[in-house]
Simulated assay, not measured.
Amino acid sequence: MNPSQQKVRQYWQAANARDWAAFAELLAEDIVYEVPQTRERVRGRQAYLRFNQTWPGDWEAELLRLLGEGDQAVSEIAFHLRQADSVKTETGISFFEFDAAGRICRIVDHWPAPYEPPPRACDCIERF
């Protein structure tokens, strides 16, 4: 596992453990976090830390896939949100960038929600 992959693994482990001191150590002071679907942006380590500390509910990020090389990495997670009598799971795809010191300086999160595709006039599509 290369350094960028290791940092992302540590990021998700610290988040799941709610180990906010370890989580903060992975972040650059000037980190920028963005979610294109909701057009949310959070700037700075302390703001991003508060953003995560105040996420509502009982959640866990299950790391499914991790790729990385040099100063970039991407992870796919199953984000499990436990509610009163059920668990809602969404897919999260996170793109990470690292600064010269090896800290996470940018994260772009994509939360693709499933949808039913439109009818097609071909038989080449396989549903899975």
Rank of each mutant, 00 (worst) to 15 (best):
H80V: 03
A84P: 04
A84I: 14
S86G: 04
T89P: 05
A78C: 01
E76R: 11
C124L: 13
E60Q: 15
E97C: 12
C122N: 15
A101E: 12
E116R: 12
G68N: 03
L66T: 06
C105K: 10
Q83R: 15
A121K: 09
R103N: 08
Q83W: 10
L64Y: 01
R106D: 03
P118S: 09
F95H: 10
F95C: 07
A61Q: 12
G102S: 05
G70D: 10
F98M: 06
P118C: 09
V108E: 07
Y115M: 12
A101C: 01
I104N: 05
I104G: 00
I77C: 10
P118L: 13
P118E: 14
C122I: 05
A100K: 15
L67D: 02
Y115N: 09
A61K: 04
D99S: 04
R120D: 02
E90K: 10
F79Y: 13
D85M: 10
C122Q: 14
L63Y: 01
E76M: 14
P117K: 10
A73K: 09
G92L: 10
P118I: 11
E116D: 15
V108I: 12
I93A: 09
L64W: 00
T91P: 00
R120K: 13
L66P: 06
L67F: 14
E69Y: 01
Q83D: 09
V74T: 11
R120T: 07
P114V: 04
Q83H: 15
C105G: 01
A121Q: 11
P112D: 05
R103V: 00
V108F: 08
F95T: 02
E60T: 15
F96V: 03
L66G: 03
V74G: 03
A121E: 14
D85C: 06
I93V: 15
A61I: 06
C124D: 14
I107P: 03
E90G: 09
H110W: 10
I104F: 01
Q72S: 10
V74Q: 08
G68I: 02
F98D: 03
D85V: 07
K88L: 13
C124T: 13
E69F: 01
F95M: 05
G68K: 01
P119H: 05
T91M: 03
S86R: 11
D71H: 13
G70V: 04
R82W: 11
A101N: 08
F95V: 09
Y115A: 13
L81S: 06
E116M: 13
L81D: 05
R120P: 00
F98P: 04
A61R: 05
P118N: 08
E62M: 00
G68Q: 05
A113L: 07
A73S: 12
R65A: 08
C105V: 05
I107Q: 07
R103A: 08
A78Y: 02
H80A: 07
V74S: 10
P114L: 08
G68S: 01
D71N: 13
W111Q: 07
P117F: 06
L64P: 00
G70A: 08
D123W: 11
R82E: 12
D71K: 10
R82P: 05
R106C: 01
D99M: 07
A101Q: 12
L81W: 06
